[in-house]
Deep mutational scan, measured.
Amino acid sequence: NQASVVANQLIPIQTALTLVMMRSEVVTPVGIPAEDIPRLVSMQVNRAVPLGTTLMPDMVKGYA
């Protein structure tokens, strides 16, 4: 099973992502693949992302 990127904390809207905000976890449905974590650093979320939420491509500006 492929690991996805999951929020390690509440990430407020417009926040630039850092490594400490994300973790990898095998979840359903599958979100952004964990191997993309380095690419996500400094990208902004376009909505508030609660703790434990799987990051989906449409939540990160410039990802999809």
Rank of each mutant, 00 (worst) to 15 (best):
residue 1 N to P: 15
residue 2 Q to Y: 10
residue 2 Q to E: 09
residue 2 Q to H: 14
residue 3 A to G: 10
residue 3 A to H: 11
residue 3 A to I: 06
residue 3 A to F: 13
residue 3 A to V: 07
residue 4 S to V: 02
residue 4 S to Q: 00
residue 5 V to T: 05
residue 5 V to K: 01
residue 5 V to D: 02
residue 7 A to G: 01
residue 8 N to E: 06
residue 8 N to Y: 04
residue 8 N to T: 10
residue 9 Q to Y: 07
residue 9 Q to T: 12
residue 9 Q to S: 09
residue 10 L to G: 11
residue 10 L to Y: 15
residue 11 I to S: 00
residue 11 I to P: 00
residue 11 I to K: 00
residue 12 P to S: 08
residue 12 P to Q: 09
residue 13 I to E: 15
residue 13 I to V: 15
residue 13 I to F: 14
residue 13 I to Y: 14
residue 13 I to A: 15
residue 14 Q to L: 14
residue 14 Q to M: 11
residue 14 Q to H: 15
residue 14 Q to D: 15
residue 15 T to R: 07
residue 15 T to W: 05
residue 15 T to A: 11
residue 16 A to I: 11
residue 16 A to G: 08
residue 16 A to Y: 12
residue 17 L to P: 01
residue 17 L to W: 03
residue 17 L to K: 00
residue 17 L to I: 10
residue 17 L to Y: 02
residue 17 L to A: 01
residue 18 T to M: 09
residue 18 T to F: 04
residue 18 T to D: 05
residue 18 T to Q: 10
residue 18 T to A: 10
residue 18 T to N: 05
residue 19 L to C: 07
residue 19 L to T: 09
residue 20 V to L: 14
residue 20 V to G: 14
residue 21 M to Q: 03
residue 21 M to V: 03
residue 21 M to E: 02
residue 21 M to C: 04
residue 22 M to H: 02
residue 22 M to W: 03
residue 22 M to Q: 00
residue 22 M to Y: 02
residue 23 R to A: 06
residue 23 R to W: 04
residue 23 R to I: 07
residue 23 R to S: 08
residue 23 R to N: 06
residue 23 R to L: 06
residue 23 R to D: 05
residue 24 S to W: 10
residue 24 S to E: 09
residue 24 S to M: 11
residue 24 S to K: 13
residue 24 S to V: 10
residue 25 E to W: 06
residue 25 E to Y: 07
residue 26 V to D: 06
residue 26 V to S: 08
residue 27 V to P: 00
residue 28 T to R: 12
residue 28 T to C: 08
residue 28 T to W: 14
residue 28 T to G: 06
residue 29 P to E: 06
residue 29 P to R: 04
residue 30 V to A: 13
residue 30 V to R: 14
residue 30 V to N: 13
residue 30 V to I: 12
residue 31 G to Q: 01
residue 31 G to S: 00
residue 32 I to Q: 00
residue 32 I to K: 01
residue 33 P to N: 08
residue 33 P to F: 07
residue 34 A to L: 04
residue 34 A to K: 05
residue 34 A to P: 05
residue 34 A to D: 06
residue 35 E to D: 12
residue 35 E to I: 14
residue 35 E to Q: 15
residue 35 E to T: 12
residue 36 D to A: 10
residue 37 I to C: 04
residue 37 I to K: 06
residue 37 I to T: 06
residue 37 I to W: 03
residue 37 I to R: 05
residue 38 P to E: 12
residue 38 P to W: 12
residue 38 P to Q: 10
residue 38 P to L: 12
residue 39 R to L: 10
residue 39 R to S: 14
residue 39 R to K: 15
residue 39 R to I: 12
residue 40 L to I: 11
residue 40 L to R: 00
residue 40 L to D: 02
residue 40 L to E: 00
residue 40 L to Y: 02
residue 41 V to Y: 04
residue 41 V to N: 03
residue 41 V to W: 00
residue 42 S to V: 04
residue 43 M to H: 09
residue 43 M to D: 02
residue 44 Q to M: 14
residue 45 V to N: 01
residue 45 V to A: 04
residue 45 V to D: 04
residue 45 V to F: 00
residue 45 V to K: 00
residue 45 V to M: 09
residue 46 N to G: 08
residue 46 N to Y: 09
residue 47 R to G: 05
residue 47 R to K: 12
residue 47 R to Y: 10
residue 47 R to P: 03
residue 47 R to A: 10
residue 48 A to C: 08
residue 48 A to P: 12
residue 49 V to R: 00
residue 50 P to D: 15
residue 50 P to A: 10
residue 50 P to R: 12
residue 51 L to R: 12
residue 52 G to I: 04
residue 52 G to A: 06
residue 53 T to E: 09
residue 53 T to G: 11
residue 53 T to R: 11
residue 53 T to M: 11
residue 53 T to Q: 10
residue 53 T to D: 11
residue 54 T to W: 03
residue 54 T to R: 01
residue 55 L to S: 02
residue 55 L to M: 13
residue 56 M to S: 07
residue 56 M to Y: 08
residue 56 M to Q: 14
residue 56 M to T: 12
residue 56 M to P: 01
residue 56 M to I: 07
residue 57 P to R: 07
residue 57 P to Y: 09
residue 57 P to I: 06
residue 57 P to M: 06
residue 57 P to Q: 06
residue 58 D to N: 10
residue 58 D to V: 08
residue 58 D to C: 08
residue 58 D to S: 15
residue 59 M to L: 05
residue 60 V to N: 00
residue 60 V to F: 06
residue 60 V to G: 02
residue 61 K to V: 15
residue 61 K to G: 08
residue 61 K to C: 07
residue 61 K to N: 15
residue 61 K to F: 12
residue 62 G to I: 04
residue 62 G to V: 04
residue 62 G to Y: 09
residue 62 G to S: 07
residue 62 G to A: 10
residue 62 G to F: 08
residue 63 Y to P: 04
residue 63 Y to E: 03
residue 64 A to E: 15
residue 64 A to Q: 15
residue 64 A to R: 05
